[in-house]
């Protein structure tokens, strides 16, 4: 097993040409885990980790839905309150 090259103190010098060059300096020589993924990783690492993106999008979607439902509840309360204040004879039949 090869040790990754030691990092110097402070900022890394960054060859700014390509994406590959940047990542090669950091990771090309380090060990990539080869152990078979277990549990949740078996799902999330499949398809080149595409399901991680799906999970992130779903978190945002469900978070916004939850918040929208709370706004809905506030409108329900307001509607009930307004109805209480409208005089009887103005209520449509």
């Amino acid at each position: 097993m090869r040790e990754p090259p030691p990092l110097r103190d402070g900022r890394q010098e960054m060859p700014a040409d390509t994406v590959e060059a940047i990542y090669d300096t950091l990771w090309a020589t380090s060990e990539i885990p080869t152990r078979a993924p277990e549990g949740i990783e078996r799902v999330m690492l499949a398809e080149d980790k595409l399901y991680v993106v799906l999970a992130v999008v779903l978190i945002i979607w469900f978070g916004l839905i939850f918040f929208l439902l709370r706004t809905d509840r506030r409108l329900d309360t307001l509607e009930r309150e307004l109805e209480d204040r409208i005089p009887e004879d103005h209520t449509p039949a």
């Binding site: 885990p33 152990r35 993924p37 990783e41 999330m44 690492l45 980790k49 991680v52 999970a55 992130v56 978190i59 945002i60 978070g63 916004l64 918040f67």
Partner: peptide, 21 residues
């Protein structure tokens, strides 16, 4: 609310990249 979603999405992203395995 957006901040909480940012934190949660960051956690999931980190779990399968920084903390893979």
């Amino acid at each position: 609310v957006f901040g909480i979603l940012g934190l949660l999405t960051g956690m999931v992203w980190a779990r399968f990249t920084w903390y893979q395995g």
